[in-house]
């Protein structure tokens, strides 16, 4: 995959030793960090996340090879912190579908749809019963 044109620097412009810095001066991800790089074009199918069905087991978060599950830290009834899934980082999701496979709810809260499918459409047509395992 080629470097985006705007990042192709001349020989006298980059840090010596091919050193990359993860963060900028303000502590934010720097332009050297792959967080600022998109692999969305690897995908032919995408996972769609259905918040209404999700039980926040976080299996998708732990199993995602591309760190794509966006979580929100909340405090549960017993006063313990826990992560709630709030969405998918589509810049970095490669559409492997591991998340769908590990999703344990009877009707999965994650399903694969064609890349061109509108998410709202997908959610509107969510299956009522779990499909048979393939």
């Amino acid at each position: 995959m080629a470097t985006p044109t705007e990042r192709l620097e001349n020989w006298d412009e980059f840090e010596i030793g091919a050193v990359l810095k993860s963060f900028d001066e303000n502590g934010n991800y720097s332009r050297d960090h792959s967080k600022t790089y998109k692999v969305a074009d690897w995908r032919v199918e995408k996972p769609v996340f259905n918040r209404d069905i999700c039980i926040d087991c976080d299996m998708c978060w732990v199993a995602c090879p591309d760190s794509c599950f966006i979580v929100e830290e909340v405090v549960n009834k017993r006063g313990k912190k826990q992560a709630n899934i709030v969405g998918i980082d589509y810049d970095h999701c490669k559409g492997c579908a591991v998340c769908v496979e590990v999703c344990p709810t009877p009707i999965k809260s994650l399903l694969m749809f064609p890349e061109f499918e509108d998410n709202n459409n997908a959610l509107a047509n969510w299956p009522k019963k779990e499909k048979k395992d393939k």
Partner: peptide
Amino acid sequence: DHPVTYGAQTEEEWHFEHKARQHKA
């Protein structure tokens, strides 16, 4: 506080520039 990556992989669009810079040094 300032993590750095050493020993990156450069493809053909970068390697030449890095080696040239090293040579200049």
